[in-house]
Design a protein around this nucleic acid. Structure first.
Lengths: 205, 205
DNA sequence: AATAAAACCGACTCGGCGGTCGGTTTAAGC
DNA sequence: GCTTAAACCGACCGCCGAGTCGGTTTTATT
């Protein structure tokens, strides 16, 4: 076995468990020992692979969180169908625990954003960057929808993207881990109502 | 001077400064000494008035945060006009720093909700209760709007209230202290778009 | 088998912070 | 002015958790 493989394996173990526990209990409320105990690893092992707790979390963001957001929220947008149902579906899917989304982390971006806001500007920036990428992709798919005649011409695509993101982040706050089907259903329903305004109206004959 | 007056005065000083600093830096990231230093008070004074840091924060919630939410988001609903513009206005107002809202705390509920979620169930409950009161009031004013003919009959008032709250909480995450006029404007615009679906359509003649 | 380097161990340090407590100041009431 | 209790002070305690470091085990190479 290559040493680099062993290294990668341990680092991945640490990152995966780290994300799980950080998301369950919050970054600042989780000690390294909490994570290490679950993996039967030592402080020494940890500091052999990571420079600090902060460095560790940045690794988690770049390897795991980014990929999750891409898989759940960005890649589904790459299609040339009507974007509105696709956006709705990706959001519904991302709120659903246990699909592409095994550990019911759901979409932890909002929790971490709030936790690090005003406390760690570097980590905040990494997290905000992810949101920005999502926003850019939403805007671009909305604009394409305009060209393709699925979305009304008067629509402010940036505004719509902002509103979608805001409502989604807020839902995460409301859901709070307790996966409440009722709330989820209400959210998706209202989102679809909102999309009616955005959609190109069938021309009156 | 009554001793009870002096007591109240000091407690209020502590609570006001406490809310300010907790909101600026986060509860867990703020030490009691941070607050006490700014007021030139001592640990002894603090523990003379409050049993613990947690007890202190519960005091802040019940005295200051609850009142702020009532003043900004609930009392404005008490009118018999068309509820939709009133809701939009209250939200716009609550995002605006420096109106009824001096210290740019804005609406800190979302930050604290996320910070305490899964870490302190008692405090979480207090915060969620505030959201619930807001939701109940939104629902009731929406239902009255239906009766008064301002809101379409098909509307799911609970769903709309949920969606309004979610988008508002999410906006708070996006704004992140950095009061970005552009984002705020986009949000209010899209909210008004959304309200078009909710509103009673002028009957076609 | 010998060697070296990577991986890992765990006792320790050190600072921060919530909370305590004996003592001091302030001020109300007689 | 004396008493008494509330208000307040600040040194101190104890715990927790990030980070350190000298030593040990595992693994790859020759």
């Amino acid at each position: 076995m290559q040493t680099t493989l062993k290294k990668r394996e341990t680092m991945h173990l640490l990152c995966a468990k780290g994300l799980e526990v950080f998301h369950a209990k919050g970054y600042h409320n989780t000690s390294l020992d909490d994570i290490l105990k679950e993996l039967s690893l030592s402080k020494g092992a940890f500091y052999h692979h990571f420079r600090s707790k902060e460095d560790f979390f940045i690794n988690i963001i770049q390897n795991l969180i980014v990929q999750k957001v891409y898989a759940l929220l960005i890649e589904p947008l790459n299609t040339h169908d009507n974007p509105l149902p696709i956006i709705a579906e990706s959001l519904e899917n991302a709120l659903e625990p246990g699909k592409g989304n095994e550990m019911a982390y759901g979409f932890m971006l909002n929790d971490f954003l709030t936790e690090f806001n005003k406390r760690n500007t570097e980590i905040s920036r990494y997290l905000k960057d992810i949101l920005n990428v999502w926003e850019v992709n939403l805007v671009s798919v909305l604009k394409r929808g305009k060209v393709d005649g699925h979305i009304a011409r008067h629509v402010d695509c940036e505004g719509v993207a902002t509103y979608i993101i805001a409502s989604y982040l807020g839902m995460r706050s409301l859901l709070m881990g307790s996966s409440n089907r009722q709330l989820k259903y209400q959210y998706i329903q209202q989102l679809k109502q909102y999309f009616k305004i955005i959609a190109e109206q069938a021309p009156v004959i």
